[in-house]
């Protein structure tokens, strides 16, 4: 099977000299389609940096990132921006949504950039918001939704643009454990039912348990990988 994402000797350093931080140090990972993978490690271990690299948000100092065999780390500017729009879904820890747009409008946003016709946009948004359990709340502004609901909208927004992979950087870190578990279960359902590939980071042991595969990072290095059944 062709991997969705592959990194080769991926390095990202911040600062220089005495203050040099090796946020990623020779990282070689591979994500296959349909995976539900957790990147696990303590704070400052390089999880966010890794997700930014494989999502084409930042350029590596060394090595490359391949998405479906295409070296995205070599693209630049508008190319990369359009590439992210069409192939990558992002979910961040919090404040994912544009505060002046309603839940539905936030979901529509990327499709608007993609130039998808209005009728199709509307249809995809409504069905996806229903899938994440937000039926009837489509016209609420982010400020009128709870933290968990906002994260659900973020998941829905990532889903509707039909990317190759969704990258979620500690999506549950700002939620209480109950709500966090629910969000993760919902993502897992989308993974199983829609076949969407998810990579998310966490340092919460309970959240890790849901992952079908675990990549442990520490000091910018992958120290262990683990695959689970179920």
């Amino acid at each position: 099977m062709k991997p969705v994402i592959e990194t080769r000797e991926l390095c990202r350093f911040y600062g220089a000299g005495d203050t040099l931080v090796k946020a990623l140090d020779d990282v070689n990972i591979r994500i296959d389609p349909g995976e539900f993978t957790a990147i696990v490690g303590p704070s400052g271990s390089g999880k966010s940096t890794l997700l930014q690299q494989i999502g084409g948000l930042d350029i590596p100092n060394h090595g490359k990132v391949l998405l479906k065999d295409k070296p995205i780390s070599e693209m630049s500017g508008k190319e990369l921006s359009d590439f992210r729009r069409d192939h990558i879904g992002f979910i961040f820890q919090a404040y994912n949504l544009i505060p002046v747009l309603s839940a539905a409008e936030n979901c529509e946003y990327i499709m608007l950039l993609q130039g998808i016709p209005a009728a199709e946009r509307r249809e995809r948004v409504l069905s996806m918001l229903a899938q994440v359990g937000l039926e009837g709340r489509e016209d609420r502004l982010p400020g009128q939704l709870s933290g968990g609901q906002q994260q659900r909208v973020a998941v829905a927004r990532a889903m509707v643009s039909q990317p190759d992979i969704i990258l979620a950087d500690e999506p549950t870190a700002n939620l209480d454990s109950q709500t966090g578990m629910e969000l993760l279960d919902m993502m897992h359902d989308l993974n199983r039912n829609e076949g969407m590939t998810f990579v998310f980071s966490t340092h919460d042991p309970k959240i890790m348990e849901r992952a079908s595969r675990l990549i442990y990072v520490e000091d910018g290095k992958v120290i262990r990988e683990e695959t689970r059944n179920g």
Partner: peptide, 16 residues
């Protein structure tokens, strides 16, 4: 700034 970081991340062009 953070909001702009997010919208750029999800594929908004700088020109937009």
């Amino acid at each position: 700034t953070y909001e702009f970081g997010v919208v750029l991340a999800i594929g908004t062009r700088r020109s937009s």
